[in-house]
Design a protein around this nucleic acid. Structure first.
Lengths: 152, 152
DNA sequence: GCAATCCGGACCGGAAAGGTCCGGATTAGC
DNA sequence: GCTAATCCGGACCTTTCCGGTCCGGATTGC
């Protein structure tokens, strides 16, 4: 299904909400605003903070804040932060020695053109492109609600 | 991790082997040639047959055969056949009514530009592009063994 | 009629993701 | 200086899904 984790979805929601709000926002507030369970929001924020996409301010009156506008935040960074590096199959990463049928396997390392293609496709999309109700002036415009994933 | 199932990987291997061999090939033979467990190969072949990518011939001296050369077989068809339609998150498919926070969720259906971008990127790649040791005269040439998936 | 092969499904185990919780560190306000 | 609010880091458990196996039935060639 080519699925990416639900956490990534949450991350986009949270980041969007973070942009809409003003100043620092505490995790519980973001949870209430987005409708996502509080511990989960906290988890997402921790990951994003680790990746440098948001900044956490401790202490009373603390909270989270974006390090830059979401329009300058490529989607790939969020995905990489949460789901790890973009690579389609296990056979593809740096490992070169533990495929039991290594000499027979004809696809050895041949997935990288695919990975590259996906990375290229994703690199042009920012979080702002996924935040519709506001200004979304970007490359792939129009088609607000296409029929949706069919045969692909 | 944007991972796609291991079955898809196997499928590419099997399809490649199917192109290399001649005439119909039985599942056990393909298993031996590829190094993949026999029941698994059978499973993959069944799925591919269902999708019309290969043709199964019953009876003694039966086996499987490609319905067309792998150079004319887009990768997306294989992925769709095995992993289902290409859609990144559950929130994206035709469902419109069971996101508990539907009115709050600002990303509703906004993943489709991403899905579309990925589909476009993948639509230019055929199975033949993933079968290196033979003739692979296609668009993304060169770079036989790039460093590999890093930050994405 | 017999053997080989595909076909369709059910079945089970293991791994990964999703989600929750807790103790500690840090800071603002009183 | 003390208290309360908040982030930080991790461990933990549950559930779902994937990978893999197996079996009975249908079909065809010899």
């Amino acid at each position: 299904m080519l699925r990416l984790s639900k956490l990534t979805d949450y991350a986009v929601v949270v980041l969007t909400r973070l942009e809409e709000g003003e100043g620092v926002q505490a995790a519980p507030d973001l949870a209430a605003a987005t409708g996502i369970a509080e511990p989960t929001v906290a988890k997402v924020l921790k990951i994003l903070a680790h990746a440098g996409l948001v900044e956490g301010l401790r202490g009373a009156r603390g909270g989270y804040r974006l390090t830059r506008p979401i329009a300058e935040m490529p989607l790939t960074e969020v995905i990489t932060a949460i789901d790890g590096p973009i690579a389609l199959t296990a056979c593809v990463d740096s490992a070169v020695g533990h495929c039991e049928a290594e000499d027979l396997c004809p696809v050895r390392g041949r997935w990288d053109p695919v990975n590259r293609a996906i990375r290229d496709a994703l690199s042009g999309i920012t979080i702002a492109d996924l935040a519709p109700p506001r200004a979304a002036p970007v490359a792939p415009p129009a088609r607000p609600a296409a029929p949706l994933a069919a045969t692909a």
